[in-house]
Amino acid sequence: MELKELFNSSNVKLALGSEEKDDVLLELISLLKLDEKAKEMLFKMLKKRENLGSTGIGKGFAIPHCRSLVVDKLNVAFGRHTKGVDFNSIDGKPANYFFLIVAPPVEISNYYLPVLGKVAQFCKSTDITAKLDKLEKVEDFLALLEEAGN
């Protein structure tokens, strides 16, 4: 599965407004089509995952992720924060680009780890932060995913 197939105008937000790590997680979760209780459970699960080690992989990127019973298929979201948010990233720098990845405990196609790997690879692409900073609309983001071959 290619990354561009997973993203669309409803799960991409280029101007996240939150200032704290937890609020960024909630804002990303809000991009998924889930009911309120499911969102609440997912938030708790993502927080527990963060406690094992931040998903802030450095260079401005964070990829919060988990498996959860509250979803029945792979769900993703992308958010960009111009100023950056403290995400306890491994390099100690604020995170500006967030990929949320949530999968059910069992998937027939088992996309979770491969998609996570593709996102991590995308985050390491040459000049990727400059390209992400230039995005003006969601379509630009989708085109960037396509350009990156993901």
Partner: peptide
């Protein structure tokens, strides 16, 4: 390998 830090995984 993806770059995640799992230093505190025993916290589970």
């Amino acid at each position: 390998e993806m770059g995640f830090d799992l230093e505190k995984k025993e916290k589970i």
